[in-house]
Simulated assay, not measured.
Amino acid sequence: MNIQAKAQGAKAARPLAGKVALVTGSTSGIGLGIARALAEAGSAVVLNGFGVVSEIAKVRDRIEADYGVKVSYSSSDMSRPEAIAEMIAATIVGHGRLDVLVNNAGIQHVAPLDQFPVEKWDAIFAINLSSAFHTTRLALPAMRQNKFGRIINIASAHGLVASPFKAAYVAAKHGIVGLTKVAALETAEEGITCNAICPGYVYTPLVEAQIDGQAKAHGISSEAVIHDVLLAQQPNKRFATVEELGALTVFLASDAAASITGVALPVDGGWTAH
Rank of each mutant, 00 (worst) to 15 (best):
K173Q: 14
E186W: 10
Y203V: 06
A155H: 07
A184L: 09
I220F: 07
C198W: 00
Y203H: 05
K147S: 13
G175C: 14
S222V: 09
C198F: 00
V170C: 12
I154W: 03
Y203F: 07
R144T: 06
L206E: 13
N146Q: 13
A188N: 14
V161A: 15
P164W: 03
Q145R: 11
Y169P: 10
P205S: 09
G213Q: 10
V170R: 03
R144F: 06
S221D: 06
P205D: 10
R150G: 06
F165R: 12
A196C: 15
A155N: 11
E186A: 14
Q214N: 14
N195E: 03
I211R: 03
Y203I: 06
T187M: 13
S163G: 15
V177K: 00
G191D: 02
S156H: 05
N146Y: 05
L179E: 00
F165C: 11
A168R: 01
A215F: 09
A183C: 13
T193V: 04
N153S: 11
A171L: 11
Y169W: 12
V207G: 09
A157I: 09
P205R: 05
A184K: 08
A172Y: 04
A215D: 07
A215L: 08
I154L: 14
H174V: 05
K147A: 12
I152N: 00
G200I: 04
G178S: 02
G191T: 05
G213L: 09
L185I: 07
G200P: 03
T193N: 05
V177L: 00
A184E: 07
I176H: 08
G191I: 04
R144Y: 05
G175E: 12
A183F: 12
L179A: 02
V182A: 08
D212S: 11
D212T: 12
S163L: 15
F148I: 04
R144P: 05
N153T: 07
A155S: 15
V202I: 13
V177Y: 00
A171V: 10
P205Q: 10
S221W: 01
H158Y: 15
A167G: 05
N146M: 10
A188I: 15
S163E: 15
S156I: 09
K173R: 15
K173I: 14
V177Q: 00
H218L: 15
Q214E: 13
C198S: 01
V182K: 09
A184G: 08
K181N: 03
Y203Q: 06
Q210S: 13
